Computed example of a mutant assay.
Amino acid sequence: MGIQLTTELCQAFNIRYPIFLAGMAGIPGVKLAAAVSNAGGLGTLGAAYMTPEAIRKAVHEMRELTQAPFGVNLFSTRLTDDNTRVDEAQRELNKIRDQLGIAQALEGGVSTPNHFAEQFAVLLEERVPVISTAFGLLPESCLQQAKAAGIRIVTMVTTVKEAMLAEQAGCDAIVAQGSEAGGHRGTFDISEHPMGANIGAMALIPQIVDRVRIPVVAAGGIMDGRGLVAALALGAQGVQMGTRFLTALESGAHEAYKDALLNSTEESTVITKAFSGRPARGIVNAFIEHWHDSGVEPLPFPTQNTITRDIRNAAAEQSNAAYMSLWAGQGTRMLTNRQKAEEILAEIVGQANAILG
């Protein structure tokens, strides 16, 4: 077929296999990321919601668990709260708080902490091998500092235009996120695309590959060696997988979340703003249904994310998946139960090699 499993991406990022673990914010991920890196992929820690001190601690733990390259993912977007309709939203959320038996929210605005500058400073000081971003590009000054320190930069994109901006900015690789992907849409400007730019991976990848020269990493519904080979055939130099590793033995995902994933199908997910105010693909549950039925428009990110946090935390403490954010892609029938990350990676690579002959 003329397709090689070892690509330029492997050389550029010093990894054995062209497989990135997605940086999944909110999932305790040090063990999983280290396991993926040790197995020959690029493990990524989702650090967007972590304090700078927690990120430093996690990076140190990563280095104790692996000598291989790894990445850390941050959200690169403006974090300005909009409390215009916060009381209306809280009144609706109080009905859900009643269901969970937790304290009602008081009236008044919220303030979301913005640790981005301090988070980035930690990554720079620790000289992490790779920094990846969602929702936008690293600010120019940050990108220049990272490049000067020898750090590789990866940006998630959902359109050709975003990919070209990432290349022009000096990124080392692009993750092309198809509409099948779980979790938040990486779309830069959701005022232009309110529910995110949702172009399927089959259409998106070759169009991006044709217009940029830096490596393209395919993401969205890729779960096995067949998906890897398909992505390579479309011109990508690797794949990024998140959902595939959520049920791995080393995954820090809540057990109720893992069970929901394993019991879901390709029909189970929707794209919703209900939890965070930004469009994200997750398994439909009572929270999403309640919010959508209410007719109340979610507050913008990060305000909606901040006011729903107590509900998500309480649901997790109660092992109640009905009110947790269950981010998932569309390929969940292909998940395996509590399989080691290295076994998952080996299976993907073995299947791809068998196809490539």
Rank of each mutant, 00 (worst) to 15 (best):
F116V: 07
A274G: 07
Q119L: 08
E317K: 15
R338A: 13
P300K: 12
T66G: 13
M241G: 11
G329Y: 00
L137N: 00
S276G: 08
P69N: 09
A260N: 11
A256L: 02
V59L: 13
M223F: 05
I344N: 04
S37R: 09
D224P: 04
G26R: 13
E126S: 04
A315H: 05
L93W: 08
V160Q: 03
V36R: 15
E107S: 14
E167C: 03
E107D: 11
V30C: 09
I131C: 06
T308I: 08
I153F: 05
I205M: 06
N285L: 05
G183F: 01
E125F: 04
A236M: 04
I205W: 10
A236D: 03
R309G: 14
N38R: 13
K31H: 15
T77F: 11
Q119I: 09
F120D: 06
M324N: 03
G227C: 05
Q119S: 15
L106D: 12
Q177C: 08
I208W: 04
L326P: 01
Q237A: 04
G46Y: 09
V154G: 12
E140L: 10
M1V: 13
F20M: 12
A39N: 14
A149M: 14
V154R: 06
R152V: 09
Q339V: 14
A149W: 01
L93G: 10
V349T: 06
E118V: 00
E125M: 06
A22W: 02
N285D: 01
A236F: 06
V284C: 12
G282D: 05
V122L: 03
C142V: 13
I283M: 14
Q67A: 15
I311S: 12
R333T: 09
G331W: 08
L228A: 07
I15N: 15
Q237D: 09
G43R: 00
K258P: 07
R152P: 06
L143A: 09
T66Q: 10
A176W: 00
